[in-house]
Design a protein around this nucleic acid. Structure first.
Lengths: 204, 204
DNA sequence: AGTGTAGACTTACGACGTAAGAATCCGCAA
DNA sequence: TTGCGGATTCTTACGTCGTAAGTCTACACT
C-alpha cells in the first residue's frame, strides 16, 4: 500500500488510522482474514509495528468495536419518545451494518462517551414521558440488545439450503415461509422494534 | 483422560461424544482454549483423529451450537400464547446459559429439527390466537433474536471498572445505576420479554 | 485365510500471535 | 554543535495452531 520503509523512518500512524484500516480490511476479507501481518501490509508497515498502537490483537478488535459504536450514535433526540427510540434503533442498526464483518465480534454494546450520551438522552426522553428511572434503563437496554442480536443474525449468513421442513410436520411454517414472510430483514426489524415500543408503552 | 492407545486400536468415539467433550472443554477453559489437540487429549486421542468425526474446526463449533440449540427446545406448548412464548424465551435463555463459553460463537439460531418443531408449535399457538401467519413468524423471530442478543451480552464479561460517567453530564444515568437498576440480568430479561409480548398483543 | 475399510497414529508444513532486541530518527539540553 | 534519550520501526525467532499427507492396525466380510 505504502512505500517500503527503512529502519527508523516514521510511517506517521495513529491508533485511529490503525483501527480504521482494520475495519476496512475486515470489510474486504472478513474477520478471519484480519491478521497482524495483513494489517501491517495494509499500512505499509511490519506486523510488530502495530503493537505500538495496540497491546494485542484482542485489544485491536475491541478498539474496532468501540469505533463502530462511537460512529453509531448521532444523538438525535426526537420529539416524542417512541420516535426517539425508533430512530435510535434504526440508526444503531444502520451503523452496525456499515461494517458487517466485525459484527461477529460484537457481543455487547461498547461503553464509550458517545454511548453514554445516547443513553442519557434516551433516559431523559423516557423519564420525561413518565417512565421510572429503572424502567427507562431496562427499556433502553432491551432495545439495544435486541438491535445487536437482530443485526448480528442478519449478517450471519449460513448455508441455508432449502429448509428441511416437510409440509406434513410443519404446515404453518411451510405456509408462512412460502408466503414470503420473514424474507426482508429490514421489515422484520421494523416489526420487532415497533412491537417493543408498543410493549414499553403498555408497561409504562 | 483415557488410557494410551496403540495404532489402530479403537477409541470407540461418536460425533456426539466429540461435540459433548468439546462443550465440556469450552465450559472449563473457554472458547480460546478449544484446540484440536486439547480436545483430542480430552478424549484420549490424537488431534487428527477428530477429523474422522468433523471436517474441520469450524464445523466442530457449528456442531456444538447445533447441539446447544437442540437441547434448548423442551417443546412445552403452553395454554395461552403469552405463557407459551414466555416459557419458550426463558427456556431458551436457560439452555444457552448452560454453556456460556460457546455463546460468542452463536450469532443466529441453528436450524435443527427441534428448532423447527418449536417454531411450528409457536406458530400454531399464535395463529390460533388471531395473529396472521406473517406476524406470527416475525414475532417468533424477534423473540428468538432478542433472547440470543440478551444472553450473549450477559456472558460477555468486560473489564467494566467504574463507569466513566460524571454526575454533571449524565445525571439520570448515574441516578438509575446507583439505584441498583439494571444489575440483575434475569430481571432485565424478564422485563424485556414481557414488553415484547405486550407489544405483540398490541399489534395483533 | 485373505482382503478392504474405518479408525487411529505420525510426521510435517505454513501461518499466526507476539517476545526480545537492534536500528534509526527526532527533539531537546548543554 | 554535540550528545543523549525516548519514540518508532524493523528483524529475528519461538511456540502453537489447523490440517494435509501418509502409515499402521484391527475388525467385518468374503
Amino acid at each position: 500500500m505504502a512505500a517500503k520503509r527503512q529502519r527508523g523512518e516514521r510511517a506517521g500512524l495513529t491508533r485511529e488510522q490503525v483501527l480504521d484500516a482494520a475495519l476496512a480490511l475486515v470489510d474486504r476479507v472478513g474477520l478471519n482474514g484480519l491478521t497482524m501481518r495483513a494489517l501491517g501490509a495494509e499500512l505499509g508497515v511490519e506486523a510488530m509495528t502495530l503493537y505500538h498502537y495496540v497491546p494485542n490483537k484482542e485489544a485491536l478488535i475491541d478498539g474496532m468495536v468501540e469505533r463502530l459504536f462511537t460512529a453509531a450514535y448521532p444523538a438525535g433526540a426526537g420529539d416524542d419518545w417512541q420516535a426517539h427510540l425508533r430512530g435510535y434503533a434504526h440508526d444503531l442498526r444502520a451503523a452496525l451494518l456499515r461494517h458487517p464483518g466485525v459484527l461477529p465480534a460484537v457481543n455487547r454494546p461498547a461503553v464509550t462517551p458517545a454511548a453514554l450520551d445516547a443513553a442519557e438522552a434516551g433516559l431523559r426522553t423516557l423519564t420525561g414521558a413518565g417512565f421510572s428511572g429503572g424502567d427507562a434503563l431496562d427499556a433502553l437496554n432491551a432495545l439495544t440488545l435486541f438491535v445487536l442480536g437482530h443485526t448480528a443474525a442478519e449478517v450471519a449468513i449460513g448455508p441455508d439450503g432449502p429448509l428441511p421442513v416437510d409440509t406434513e410436520r410443519h404446515p404453518l411454517l411451510v405456509e408462512a415461509v412460502e408466503s414470503g414472510a420473514g424474507i426482508d430483514d429490514a421489515a422484520r426489524f421494523t416489526f420487532a422494534v415497533d412491537a417493543l415500543l408498543a410493549g414499553f408503552d403498555a408497561l409504562r
